[in-house]
Nucleic acid binder design. Structure first.
Length: 219
DNA sequence: ACATGATCATCA
DNA sequence: TGATGATCATGT
């Protein structure tokens, strides 16, 4: 993708189209459901939009500074799931600041694409919604920064295992792993290294809901 | 293991 | 019924 207007135009033209027809265009098979294919819709839209694929710590469109995120919504436009942002660093974090954090980098500019997430509708028949570009307002960035700082402070103090998803107004910390046996290093309560479950940063649904309401002028 | 893409399954 | 903690697939 060469420029932002082109990307946005292409994303806008996906509105109203079904997963079945979009999958056919790129030669994908529509799974029966998402139970064993949780990232399928995201990958479908990546292919449709030509995101620079890869499992790298980069935005989806590095040359444009844009991150692509699908967001499943119900019939009223409410998000059905939280939004994963990135893995949480648990060691070598003493020098880390919000300004250089992966959370801030990923959320600097997001191309949101709402999708029909209703499980009662067959996956193939679900459709894409209206894409929009978002950059956090000063107030939103302040909320994100504050939550990020509180989480990182606890992690630096060796309290990562005391953090629950209840903490954080807009940005929460939750497990992010293939299963409960996966381990990674973190700072322990006495400053030593411990093994713990990998964590990720997620946007709470109340936050993404407010983003959707702002953009679509909903109550 | 860790990055990407997320939703599932269960319980309060 | 909403949210938390757990989990699934794939590529490097």
């Amino acid at each position: 993708m060469q420029d932002l207007p082109s990307l946005f135009a292409k994303a806008s033209q996906l509105a109203g189209r079904s997963f079945a027809e979009l999958a056919a265009e790129v030669g994908l098979k529509v799974p029966k459901d998402l139970r064993r294919n949780k990232g399928w819709v995201g990958q479908l839209l990546e292919q449709q939009l030509g995101a620079s694929a890869g499992s790298q710590q980069l935005q989806d469109f590095p040359e444009l500074g844009v991150e692509l995120k699908t967001i499943p919504i119900d019939a009223t436009g409410k998000p059905l799931e939280t939004t994963f942002v990135c893995t949480t660093p648990l060691v070598d974090i003493e020098q880390l600041s919000w300004e250089q954090s992966n959370v801030r980098n990923k959320l600097q500019c997001v191309l949101w694409i709402p999708i029909d997430g209703r499980r009662e509708i067959a996956l193939a028949e679900r459709t894409v919604g209206t894409a929009f570009l978002w950059q956090p307002s000063a107030a939103q960035e302040q909320q994100l920064r504050q939550d990020w700082q509180e989480h990182m402070d606890r992690i630096a103090l060796g309290q990562v295992e005391q953090i629950s998803a209840h903490q954080g107004e807009v940005l929460q910390l939750r497990p992010k792993a293939a299963n409960g046996r996966v381990k990674t290093q973190a700072i322990g309560p006495n400053g030593q290294l411990i093994e713990t479950l990998p964590r990720g940063f997620y946007l709470k649904t109340s936050f993404t809901h407010s983003i959707l309401r702002d953009v679509f002028n909903l109550p």
